[in-house]
């Protein structure tokens, strides 16, 4: 996988995805390995994303790599009107790999076509965020011991949530049963459901969160954003219907864990945080190991 780009989760085969997860496991056991001391990692964040950027920079630091970059378009030459192509070509002179987040869909694929150094997509608009998908897969495998034959429940905004779309597509390789809980306005789009159907897997749709709690091995929460609703009355009707509280977890399976891509607002009550079933902060930590594995693998030292 040396010098490969990671733009969309499908760019890596199932075996390659597993290899990244296995390498991430090594880094979890031994996080500080100065194996990239001669490398420069550029993090180009054309729109702010504190969590993803810090997680990548933490991963690079633990590998001994130097990090250069910017954290918003305002602090880059984009504000002077530079094209994406020119920014990428320039920065590739200064770095061995580019991690980029950009507000436009498809920007990462385009960058990978003009860049002489590999690109890791850290989110391109509403399109893809493959490193999130890999860390979600890592967290599921870690908590369940396997990725196969699980009951995965997705809750909240399934229409616009790109993490849900990518993870759903990745999980169709593992005989997953999908439980999809959302307001009618925010159901999983048909092009994602098509992937489930093509793999002859089962999915069930619900509007009531309580119904799925006893069935799920993983409850994957997402935030419902007000700006997704054209009619604010519709938003008011559903805004609290998909909030998880500790008392609701009474009938959950013992092995069940709650995941969330973060940031959380109020869709998971803080009283869930101390429940051993809450896994979202560890999930964020797993992001560092997965990103270490990606940087080390793509730069050819693992």
């Amino acid at each position: 996988m040396k010098n490969r780009n990671l733009i969309s989760i499908n760019d890596f085969s199932k075996e390659e995805q597993i290899k990244i997860l296995d390498t991430a496991e090594e880094f979890e056991k031994n996080p500080t390995q100065k194996i990239l001391e001669d490398s420069v990692v550029a993090t180009l964040f054309f729109e702010p994303s504190t969590r993803t950027r810090l997680s990548f920079e933490s991963a690079a630091s633990r590998l001994g790599a130097k990090v250069i970059g910017f954290s918003s378009s305002a602090s880059s030459s984009v504000s002077k009107g530079e094209s994406l192509k020119d920014t990428i070509l320039t920065v590739s002179n200064y770095s061995d790999i580019i991690v980029m987040r950009h507000p436009k869909d498809g920007s990462a694929r385009y960058a990978s076509e003009v860049s002489p150094v590999p690109i890791i997509n850290a989110g391109d608009g509403s399109n893809q965020h493959p490193t999130q998908t890999l860390l979600d897969m890592y967290s599921i495998r870690k908590t369940q011991g396997t990725l196969d034959n699980l009951n995965i429940a997705f809750i909240g905004d399934l229409k616009y949530g790109r993490t849900v779309h990518s993870l759903t597509m990745a999980l169709t390789q593992y005989n997953t049963t999908f439980h999809l809980v959302s307001p009618l306005e925010l159901k999983l789009p048909s092009y994602v459901k098509r992937h489930i159907k093509q793999n002859n897997l089962d999915y069930h749709q619900y509007t009531d969160l309580m119904e799925v709690i006893p069935k799920a091995d993983i409850i994957y929460m997402t935030r419902i954003q007000k700006e997704r609703f054209s009619d604010l009355m519709d938003y008011e009707k559903v805004k609290n219907a998909y909030n998880l509280e500790n008392a609701m977890l009474e009938n959950a399976k013992d092995n069940m864990r709650v995941l969330h891509p973060l940031p959380r607002v109020n869709e998971i009550s803080v009283d869930v945080d101390t429940n051993p079933k809450a896994y979202y902060f560890t999930q964020a930590l797993n992001g560092v190991f997965v990103r270490q594995a990606l940087l080390a693998t793509i730069l050819g030292v693992k």
């Binding site: 094209s83 994406l84 192509k85 436009k104 869909d105 498809g106 920007s107 385009y110 608009g125 509403s126």
Partner: peptide
Amino acid sequence: KCFNPNCITNIEKI
């Protein structure tokens, strides 16, 4: 033309 207004091909010369 890509119909998605947020697509990079509608922003840069691609």
